[in-house]
């Protein structure tokens, strides 16, 4: 059986099946929705960071832009929610295209420039002069399209496509070429890999994923401010979850989200007073002992982790 089929059968299908069934068993649907959202975002970070080495500290910029893309279409064109979600993805891609010059930078310079870019988008959206388009800082209310269960299943579709995309990257020559670019772009270029094209493709795919997730988030929550959807915590959580599990793998970000976001909520519900201590210790432990993520526990022993 080809690896790609195995990955789909043993990782993607069970994951989607579990999240498709859970709303019938557990009533806090928003918690499940947040899990799905962070699974999408962590895989989005995985695509750009895991496969190309660009750490997107301002990843929330695409997410927020997607949310506002959704809002603008619903508010001004009375679009059906699904069309608005597709438009949200398109807004993410367009923003990604606009920011492609950032790919000339690398390492911390890219991370900081990306963060600055996301803040610029936030302030553009929140500008009172754009009140007629984005409602500026005054917040949007999209009660007409409010439908949490449809939004949840739309998020599951996006999660399927995103994880499917990562399975493709993990099992295709395209993904291999991306990893080659990440390891040594000069050598990859000499081997015939179109470095610029590869990086832009991964960057835009990552932006698309976040834009779609942002659009669906806007659909689900329906009342929000720029501060809600451009909150830096989306970027931080998505990056930490992906790193915790292990990037450049299919299962790493999934494990990271399930464990870390699970623990986050468990502490939040039970012992919030120790939240920062427990969470901080967990992350410190990860950085000190497992810098390549939880999956490295297996890879160190020579086990293959998809």
């Amino acid at each position: 059986m080809p690896n790609a089929v195995k990955h789909v059968l043993f990782i993607l299908v069970p994951l989607i099946a579990v999240f498709a069934v859970l709303p019938g068993l557990y009533q806090n649907h928003l918690l499940l929705f947040n899990f799905v959202t962070f699974l999408i975002l962590a895989q989005g970070v995985n695509i750009i960071y895991g496969f190309t080495g660009y750490l997107p500290f301002g990843y929330v910029g695409f997410f927020g832009a997607g949310a506002y893309g959704f809002a603008v279409l619903v508010m001004h064109y009375q679009s059906p929610a699904l069309v608005a979600v597709l438009a949200a993805g398109l807004v993410g891609v367009l923003l990604g295209l606009l920011l492609t010059p950032l790919l000339r930078l690398s390492g911390a310079y890219f991370a900081i420039a990306n963060l600055a870019a996301s803040l610029a988008v936030l302030h553009l959206v929140a500008n009172p002069a754009l009140e007629g388009i984005t409602k500026g800082p005054y917040g949007v209310s999209l009660t007409g399209t409010f439908n949490p269960s449809h939004a949840y299943y739309a998020a599951l579709v996006v999660l399927t496509l995103t994880v499917g995309g990562v399975v493709f990257l993990k099992n295709s020559s395209f993904g291999l070429a991306l990893q080659a670019v990440r390891e040594d772009s000069v050598s990859a270029s000499m081997a015939g890999v179109n470095v610029v094209k590869m990086r832009i493709a991964a960057w835009l795919a990552s932006a698309l994923v976040a834009g779609l997730a942002g659009g669906i988030y806007a659909w689900y929550v329906s009342v929000f401010y720029p501060d809600n959807v451009f909150s830096g915590e989306f970027s931080i959580f998505a990056i930490v979850f992906a790193l915790f599990g292990g990037v450049a793998t299919i299962s790493g970000p999934i494990i990271g989200v399930l464990i870390l976001y699970g623990v986050y909520n468990l502490i939040g519900f039970t012992t919030p007073q120790y939240f920062q201590l427990i969470y901080g210790l967990l992350i410190m432990g990860l950085v000190l002992f497992l810098p390549a993520g939880l999956v490295s526990l297996a890879t160190r022993r020579g086990w293959h982790v998809p």
Binding site: L30, N34, T37, F224, N228, S231, E233, F237, N265, G268
Partner: peptide, 8 residues
């Protein structure tokens, strides 16, 4: 955190 607030 607004996402956490929503869940809670």
């Amino acid at each position: 955190n607004t996402a956490t607030a929503a869940t809670l």
